[in-house]
């Protein structure tokens, strides 16, 4: 059984095109909503991964690989390092590992925003989750000989 472009799958194609963007936008919302309300790096990451998976389902593998030229294993490593570095950064200032800081800033466009060190940590988690979920599923899917 080979995975080919199924031209008849018009329905899936057209829905994927629309839904993927909604899913991606929602995942970004979830990612930023985390911290004090439901959401965060893990959930946002899973949502992004499911959006990307939908793209893999809707189109064939080669085309998506061209559109998303990421090496997911590298992404895992980068995510881990980002998260770790956030934890370590507090050590550099003499606080215990993983101590988090936050403050309010006036940013252009966004207005008064809370910026915390939990955010880059979450970003690391986000990257790891997206990459791991896709690595697992693609590894199984590619083995389909």
């Amino acid at each position: 059984m080979k995975r080919q472009v199924r031209a008849s799958n018009l329905m899936l194609h057209s829905i994927t095109r629309v839904v993927t963007f909604i899913l991606l936008a929602f995942s970004i919302y979830l990612f930023f909503a985390g911290h004090n309300s439901p959401g965060g790096g893990f959930i946002g990451g899973l949502m992004t991964a499911s959006a990307l998976l939908l793209m893999y389902l809707g189109f064939d593998m080669k085309r998506i690989k061209k559109a998303l030229p990421f090496n997911f294993t590298t992404m895992i490593a980068v995510g881990l390092l980002v998260a770790l570095f956030t934890g370590v950064s507090s050590m550099l200032f003499g606080y215990p590992f993983l101590t988090q800081f936050f403050d309010y800033y006036d940013l252009p466009v966004l207005g008064n925003t809370e910026l915390s060190t939990a955010l880059p940590f979450d970003l690391g988690i986000y990257l790891v989750v997206v990459a791991i979920a896709l690595t697992i599923i693609l590894a199984i899917a590619e083995d389909d000989s």
Binding site: A77, L81, L84, V88
Partner: peptide, 16 residues
């Protein structure tokens, strides 16, 4: 932290 932070960080770097 170091006894488990060092191997963790290096493990992540080695993936690269």
């Amino acid at each position: 932290v170091l006894p488990f932070l060092i191997p963790f960080a290096v493990g992540a770097i080695l993936i690269l």
